[in-house]
């Protein structure tokens, strides 16, 4: 379990805490108030005593991630000004993201400039692997953090001297949960799933597959050795996200990667 955020607190039943929602307040949108509302203000310290306080209510209605969204918008504007196409690679640890990036850089570096922002909790091992290809890389260590956020990416961009019309690959912290919610200013999230992980991952971690526009199903060279149900995996991914594009690839053999490079080329021009 993630000690910072309690990521995998897994099976917490909500329904027992659900109580009818009785107070009135104004909304500029419609929703059903009766269904399920959890009132966390019912504890002893939350008791209101009329006449004893000067309390008042301030309406805010701001997205909790609005600060991240503002940083992400700034990153996006900065990238757009130099015609840089940025992809945010997300996956669980060990899916082969770094190997995939190394392969992609080696295959594409003759025709375009590529830089990488590497996110990990500790060490600069991945950035060193990227730099061995000749591509510039900045390592962001999140410490105990379980995801990259747009503010970190802004600082990483300060460190990289990105060339106009280049590619930027952001390798997020290996975590199939938390990075889903954080826009970094990228053009697309690319989720990497490996065939050794099990075909039901999209159903078990739907937020990430819902947030991604492209899924790379990696380690396809291992398929002859596994009981991986390819059709079940594709069905699961499309059930969570009917619009996701899927490519079956191998960073080791290069199988299927031409389609990925063509996918990038089609979008860089656009």
């Amino acid at each position: 379990m993630c000690t910072v955020c309690g990521c995998s607190t897994a099976t917490i039943a909500h329904s027992a805490d659900v109580v009818p929602h009785t107070h009135d307040h104004d909304h500029d949108h419609d929703h059903d108030h009766d269904a399920e509302t959890i009132d966390f203000g019912k504890g002893a310290a939350g008791v209101d005593v009329a006449g004893l306080s000067q309390g008042r209510t301030i309406r805010i209605e701001r997205d909790i991630l609005s600060k991240n969204a503002a940083f992400a918008d700034a990153n996006r504007a900065r990238l757009r000004a130099k015609h840089i196409f940025a992809l945010n690679f997300v996956s669980s640890p060990g899916s082969g993201k770094t190997s995939l990036l190394v392969r992609t850089i080696n295959d594409m570096k003759a025709r375009c400039s590529i830089a990488v922002i590497e996110g990990d909790q500790q060490t600069s091992r991945d950035a060193e692997r990227i730099r061995a290809t000749g591509a510039p890389a900045v390592q962001v260590n999140t410490g105990k953090g379980c995801h990259l956020d747009a503010h970190m990416i802004g600082h990483a961009l300060d460190r990289l001297s990105l060339e106009p019309d280049s590619l930027l690959f952001i390798e997020n912290v290996g975590n199939l949960v938390c990075p889903a919610a954080f826009d970094l200013g990228e053009a697309h999230k690319v989720v990497v799933l490996s065939v050794t992980e099990g075909e039901d991952k999209p159903l078990k971690y739907p937020d990430m597959f819902a947030a991604a526009d492209l899924m790379l199903l990696n380690k396809a060279d291992l398929l002859p050795h596994l009981d991986f149900d390819m059709q079940a995996c594709l069905t699961a991914a499309l059930r969570v996200n009917p619009n996701i594009e899927i490519m079956i690839v191998s960073a080791r053999t290069g199988e299927g990667l031409a389609a990925f490079y063509a996918w990038i080329d089609a979008r860089v021009g656009g």
Binding site: H25, G55, R56, T57, I58, R59, I60, E61, R62, D63, I64, L65, A181
Partner: peptide, 8 residues
């Protein structure tokens, strides 16, 4: 995922 109101 919205901060709706504060009682202050």
């Amino acid at each position: 995922l919205r901060l709706a109101e504060l009682e202050v």
